[in-house]
Design a protein around this nucleic acid. Structure first.
Lengths: 161, 161
DNA sequence: CCTGAAAAGAACTTTCT
DNA sequence: AGAAAGTTCTTTTCAGG
């Protein structure tokens, strides 16, 4: 497992998590390395899957898909095979942005994008239809997206280093 | 508001939402345009804020921050000034990945990243301390991230076009 | 106005020290 | 790791539909 991140790697990650089109030279002077070194480290982190993807974030409203829903799913009897099946299915549903298997009375929490309420209704119906073991869906309509991102804080000081 | 997306734009968005480092020439042959045209459109969508960001997605476990929590916040009496204040505060908290203001008994739903349970406890305590109007926090520990992304489906056929 | 093609410029990749 | 040469991509320019 060749993934020991040092302080340079962490600083680089902190920057590209906000803007992955940032020029290597700019990153270099921010972290105190040469542009070559930065590129090398980025390449290594990509192949090592420390950076799992580099994606464009699109404005929901601009593309005519302004609504977001948070759905809480309750499963009849939780079992891992049902979970695996749900994961595989959810992967193919583009409307489902995120899916979390969680503790508590709710078993799965979904972040869902939809054109409007009717479109969401169709999606939730589809979920119920494809997964009989889901007992009920508790829906929260998002009135306002206060913050949106996938940023993870990366402490520069490594505890065990 | 100069943002009328045609079929080409939508196809481009569908691709760069999955990989924004994709070469213009590759996108070009996928959508049926020249590389120049693709670059022009990308540039326009960036300045028009249809593409709001281009970010690197990092593996939680690789950076020593393996845990995710979904927190449901109940506010004493919802008012927009408190909401605006919360938004501004949440923006600065790197551990808070996402924040949704929602309908239902829960008022705000947070997606929070943490090193471990103790770190989460400190964050939730901090939330309570900074926002007296928050009555309680209902926490769901994420056992498994089934799907993670910010992808939005972009229909190629435009309804009113 | 937007496309496509070629020239000019800038970035990334590789090699070497 | 850094610097420079080599390669590739992006950006600009320009002619055409």
């Amino acid at each position: 497992m060749p993934d020991a991140l040092d302080g340079f790697d962490r600083k680089i990650l902190q920057l590209v998590q906000r803007d992955c089109h940032m020029k290597a030279e700019l990153i270099a002077e921010a972290v105190g390395l040469s542009a070559s070194a930065v590129q090398r480290r980025l390449k290594r982190m990509r192949t090592d899957k420390i950076i799992t993807a580099e994606i464009a974030v699109v404005d929901r409203k601009a593309i005519g898909r302004p609504m977001t829903f948070v759905a809480g799913l309750e499963i009849e009897r939780e079992n891992y095979s049902a979970l695996a099946k749900f994961r595989a299915w959810a992967d193919k549903q583009d409307e489902i942005q995120q899916a979390y298997y969680v503790t508590g009375s709710t078993d799965i929490i979904l972040i869902i994008s939809a054109e409007d309420v009717e479109a969401y209704d169709a999606i939730s119906a589809s979920i119920m239809m494809h997964h009989p073991q889901i007992r009920r869906i508790n829906t929260n309509v998002v009135l306002n997206v206060l913050k949106l991102g996938l940023f993870l804080p990366v402490e520069s000081e490594v505890p065990g280093d």
